[in-house]
Design a protein around this nucleic acid. Structure first.
Lengths: 341, 341
DNA sequence: CCAGCAGCTGCAAACGCTTCCAAAGCATGC
DNA sequence: GCATGCTTTGGAAGCGTTTGCAGCTGCTGG
């Protein structure tokens, strides 16, 4: 296995010059650079990552902590992060952690100085944990989760939930159900509650009642929402004319359940989601598009910018823009509906 | 930032002893071990990853190369790999690479000695590339892709495609369509062709004709398959009575398209897939379950076992078992169908 | 009672780079 | 022609561990 020394010898240069030539830092004459690169190529030499990191203190490695890589939002973010990181020449160390593993990951991995920065997606960290990270000069940006003291990227969850609800209200709906996250989900991510808050706010503003039995919860998956929606739509005598689902995956589950009961979307039931899921198009789903990949990419930009200068201290909170996408899953309520008061 | 030296001082031990105490290697008295650990804890000390790796030559880091983290199969494998790796105390470096980036990733990242091993998912590597990796003592295992010279985990694609087709044939179907991968996909992964081969074999064995217009391709996504299936089912006068889709996501796309045309599953159209996708249950999809997470976990087991001993040389090829799951999307063909000959 | 041995411990040499510092090379301006 | 300043180069000191080697201690068995 050739070392930098071998390259230096072959190129007739010093180790120092070869190092500078290959890393691109510092002044090296064009001639030396070429010689060094040629020699390296001939020997099939590549810098040792660990030696470089040890000597320079830089890792070129960002840790990404996600609760799952299987669900739409997370895999989208990871793809966005991954692409940006690769472009920048950074490695991405993935920590796909369930909640009960959080702690050990933090201690055993993140703190071991092996990452330059951390991107935490929908991960709830305590202030102490964040301080720990910042204390060892590890910038940290959170996506979709509250990270007191760290930089965060988030969408206006409450606001878009209001928008979604208002969209239904403006169409004339008054019998509106909300499909939210279940307890487990709420605990970790807070997000369902925030969206539910927006829903309630919009309903209240319109003077519409929020029926408890029309507030159902699921686990944010299509399957889970499908099961919940079957109960919502199949069971009682009274049925809502519209459903606002807290995610597109749940909206799709709702649509599937509705179809089972022969309900036509949007004539018998309007459905709106949040996300911008690729499948939305197939279902004609009206939704609010939060560009998850874009959020991932932005997180990287933020970090990389931050890694240059001090980075600590300044914790920004960026609100990521969303886009209302109207498709065919929402329309006016059935004509014979008695409005709710 | 405390170093091992500080710990040694505080514990009244030498650096060497502290190192041994904390890493668990070598003989250390119980008393010394406790002191070292206590001192480390008090100082909030953690071993530097890079220094350890540099000195020991071990990274505790496995590189995972996937073409996407967004599609079912890949994210499932990644989850399986991730969990196993975390348990074993390894980091997972994710390379989410599009085909045109393959090369630079290999050179810039994998070869930089920063990973102990590589798991390549559905990645086509040339023999040269594999040799490169093995040459620097990096065991490599491939999942779902042909890796000449490396260890691989694969399912019997041809066989299960035959099984799936035979399932339809045994039910009495003769008008069977096949939804396969498109050209781009085939180029990268070979897999669509293999499954198609199994399909054709089963058809031939049953003396059934394979109609070219019933061999449609899509990009392995629900959306893509939905579009293709609409063309298949909506267009021509003659319609197949059954569709064998090369993946569950495509099977689901087919079911959605069928519903659009008012076709009842399975009475008017039987659909079978391959994968074991979580959504299969919602659609009552008959499928062949390949435990993707399990495959990921197995890959890690293989690697970790290999990392211990020589690892090189012996390249195993493991066929991963699959499970036929019969649900409600397949049944006998409509009674009035004229069998094809 | 002492050689022999095993378990602990510490010293110091790697590990393979980066980068500070000083020296050398080379124009330029006066 | 010489001082000046800038670019380029090489020497060598780290970076923070692991680990081979040797010494030390305390037992055990003869």
């Amino acid at each position: 296995m050739p070392g930098i020394k071998d390259v230096a010898e072959r190129a007739g240069l010093s180790i120092a010059t070869v190092s500078r030539a290959l890393s691109g830092k510092g002044n090296v004459s064009a001639r030396s650079r070429e010689r060094a690169q040629a020699a390296a190529a001939e020997l099939g030499f590549v810098l040792s990552y660990h030696a470089s990191s040890l000597a320079s203190g830089r890792n070129h490695n960002v840790g990404v902590v996600v609760p799952s890589v299987h669900r739409w939002f997370f895999s989208s973010v990871v793809e966005g992060v991954s692409a940006s990181l690769l472009d920048a020449g950074y490695d991405l160390t993935l920590y796909n952690v369930s909640e009960n593993r959080r702690h050990s990951v933090l201690n055993d991995f993140l703190l071991r100085k092996r990452v330059d920065a951390v991107i935490a997606v929908s991960l709830e960290l305590s202030e102490t944990e964040i301080r720990q990270l910042l204390a060892i000069h590890r910038p940290i940006v959170g996506i979709g989760g509250p990270l007191p003291g760290a930089s965060t990227i988030r969408i206006n969850d409450s606001g878009i939930a209001e928008d979604a609800t208002n969209h239904l209200i403006h169409l004339g709906h008054s019998r509106i159900a909300h499909l939210t996250g279940d307890a487990a989900y709420q605990q970790d991510f807070r997000l369902p509650g925030t969206r539910q808050g927006g829903f309630e706010k919009a309903m209240a503003a319109a003077g519409l009642p929020v029926r408890p039995e029309w507030q159902v919860s699921a686990d944010f998956t299509v399957q889970g929402a499908y099961a919940s929606a079957r109960r919502l739509l199949g069971g009682s005598s009274e049925r809502p004319t519209a459903v606002f689902a807290a995610s597109d995956e749940m909206a799709i589950g709702t649509i599937l359940a509705a179809r089972d009961f022969g309900l036509r979307i949007p004539y018998d039931l309007s459905v709106i989601g949040i996300d911008g899921h690729e499948l939305g198009e197939v279902f004609g789903l009206t939704t609010i598009d939060q560009d998850a990949r874009g959020q991932g990419a932005l997180a990287v930009r933020l970090l990389l910018a931050g890694l240059g200068d001090a980075a600590d201290g300044g914790s920004t909170d960026t609100e990521f823009p969303t886009k209302f996408v109207v498709r065919s899953s929402t329309s006016v309520p059935p004509r014979d509906t008695v409005p709710l008061r």
